[in-house]
Structure formats: C-alpha cells, structure tokens
Amino acid sequence: MNLRRKKLWMTVTLAVLAAAVILIPAPALAANPIERFVMVEASQYAFTPATLHANPGDTVTIELHSADVAHGIYVEGYGVSAEAQPGQPVAFTFVVTESGVFRLRCSITCGALHPFMLGRLTVGPNWTLARAAALAGLAVLAAPLAVRRETA
C-alpha cells in the first residue's frame, strides 16, 4: 500500500472513532428514579458538598444553608435557583432529565471571589470527561497524519 492510501485509511479510521466517541449514547442504567434530598452548605466561596450526584429521572431537593453571608445556588443547564440568608435555609425541588455535568454557581454577590464560587451536579455516570479524554487521544494520534513528509 502506498503512503497516501495508508494515510487516507488512518484518517478515515480516526474520524469514525471520533464520531463514535461523540455520538454513541451512554448506556442507560436501569436505575429506578428516586427522590433525593441534599443539604448544601454555602460559605465563602464554596458549596459543601461540592459535587452532587443524581440519575436521570430523579427528583432532587436541595436545601441551601448559608453559613456566613447570603448566598444563592444556580443550577446551570436547568436554570433553577434559590437564595438563602444566613440562618434561613431554603429548599427547592426539580427533576433531573438530561445526563451530563452541570455547574452550580452562587447567584448572589457574596464577596470578592463570588464569580468563582462553583460546584457540580453530575447526572448519571460522568461520561463527558471520558469522551473528552478519548477525543484528545484521537487528536494526538491524528497529528502525524497532518505532517507533510519533510522534503529537506
């Protein structure tokens, strides 16, 4: 096989693999939807626990406690939020549908680093990172294909 054809085949293979990594849906886990209750404590500048887990279909209730000053919690991707004054916990409930990783952000300016007060909600197994890493690996494998042969 000449070099050109070999390169073409490798390119096609990598492209197919990349498409597979992006498109193949995550295996559906047969977990029965449940109700989850989580108490989240907000303080400058973190949520505890910082990562919440749920499975698609679950009904999640978050009870937000502010430990120092007023904080809020905003769930990216779902657009739901709540705000709590210190000593006055607030609860809200929503149903998680889509799987993936979603950022939790403080929604009240609570101090200098407020814009960076973050947490995470992972719905289902965290396939995003695995897929991303696989894509980066394929990108590295593709690099030799993009180098023209040195004609020194």
Binding site: E76, R105, T128, A132, A136, L138, A139, A143, P144, A146
Partner: peptide, 30 residues
Amino acid sequence: WSPLYGSWTVAVQVGVLALGAFGAARVAQR
C-alpha cells in the same frame, strides 16, 4: 445576572483542548 453558558460551552472547550493536544503533537512530530 444570567449566565450565557450551556452545553455548547463544554463542547467548544473540549474541541479547543483536543485541538491544542493535536497542535502540540504536530509540533513535536515536526
């Protein structure tokens, strides 16, 4: 305050990082 952020941001970030790894490997190759 309303974040202009969504799953597209994550997709773009992954794309950019993969491109960076690709670029690095290509420079290493050459």
